[in-house]
């Protein structure tokens, strides 16, 4: 139970390098995660996500650079980092001849939680992860989803201020994914800082406050989801269906500022609008209607996180 009272970044990667032979698994990666933020760490397989997360979790050492958790270096103060950090690896181990509650009890003891504090932590963790119904079930008999919950429970049993989750939604069915998303948002609401990696980008888009995209060991871009979308493509695709006068609308739009790539037929007009702000879109629609164009349908589509990811990454592996 470690209290954190200052407001500096909870996670900081400072020019982190990690080489495996000639492979630059992590190559000059720097970013920060603020307290209470959920940071999505995105990248193709072999991009360096797990390596950076393992360094942050004091399971590996960087060749150069440093990483700080709550201001403590993972290289020089791993003991202090571990008290503040819970790590959920993508493949986690279990002990034979143990059930869920014994497993959590062992890790609670390992974090030095004693007496009634431990019984309370166990009760709360089992309830929060939904494992209370199967507390006495052998771990070997658990489904993938339940194992993920157990692993999350293990990571949060000592009430850490930072949680690092490596591919937590991997292999889960849609319901389990939604439940996991709620759990992660719940942890963020408790004030915890989370670093989450995942391949399921739609999930990350919905639950992350900020994201970082890494490829071939290098961080390509980082920031809030909205900022990144705006930065990469500051316009939206608009489709307008009309009863008639589509070509006239095309000509009318050509004179307007911020409109480009107009494709007009008699009944359908497509164009790009240099803003994804709802107010500006509403004003544009109002102007079209006031210009007496018989609008049947107006739709705009902004880009998903997947589009952003595909645009930024090349898919190259090392």
């Amino acid at each position: 139970m470690v209290a954190t009272v200052h407001t500096s970044p909870m996670i900081q990667l400072r020019r982190l390098f990690r080489f495996f032979g000639n492979t630059k698994a992590v190559n000059d990666v720097s970013f920060e995660v603020l307290p209470g933020q959920v940071f999505g760490y995105i990248g193709p397989n072999g991009a360096g996500k797990t390596t950076s997360m393992r360094i942050l979790s004091t399971l590996d050492l960087p060749d150069y650079g440093d990483a700080l958790v709550d201001g403590f270096s993972v290289v020089n103060d791993p003991d202090r980092v571990r008290k503040r950090l819970g790590f959920m690896p993508d493949n986690f181990g279990t002990y034979p001849n143990m059930n869920c509650v014994e497993y959590l009890d062992f890790f609670a003891r390992s974090y030095g939680i004693v007496g009634r504090d431990r019984t309370k932590a166990l009760r709360h963790t089992l309830a929060y992860t939904g494992l209370d119904k199967i507390a006495e079930k052998s771990i070997r008999g658990l489904s993938k989803g339940m194992r993920q919950r157990l692993c999350l429970g293990r990571a949060m049993i000592h009430d850490p201020s930072v949680l690092i989750l490596d591919e937590p939604a991997n292999g889960l069915d849609p319901r389990a994914r939604i439940e996991l998303r709620h759990m992660i948002r719940g942890l963020a609401a408790m004030g915890k800082t989370l670093l989450v990696s995942s391949h399921i980008l739609t999930e990350l888009g919905e639950m992350c406050d900020a994201i970082g995209i890494i490829e071939r060991g290098q961080l390509i871009i980082s920031g809030t989801v909205a900022d990144i979308k705006a930065q990469l493509r500051p316009h939206i695709d608009v489709l307008v269906r009309l009863i008639a006068k589509g070509e006239d609308l095309g000509l009318w739009l050509a004179d307007k500022p911020g409109i480009s790539h107009i494709q007009a037929s008699d009944l359908v007009v497509r164009f790009q609008f240099a803003s994804d702000q709802p107010q500006e879109q509403a004003q544009l629609l109002q102007a079209i209607v006031q210009a007496s164009f018989p609008v049947l349908e107006y739709s705009s589509e902004s880009r998903s996180l997947e589009d952003v990811f595909l645009q930024i990454t090349t898919g190259a592996v090392q």
């Binding site: 509650v101 009760r123 309830a127 209370d132």
Partner: peptide, 24 residues
């Protein structure tokens, strides 16, 4: 600091019957 500590008061609201989780 987390708003709701795992060992805090909210934990007592959870009712779970297990020998390890019960207060002796």
């Amino acid at each position: 600091m987390s708003q709701s500590s795992l060992t805090g008061a909210s934990a007592t609201e959870v009712t779970l019957q297990h020998r390890i989780c019960e207060d002796p």
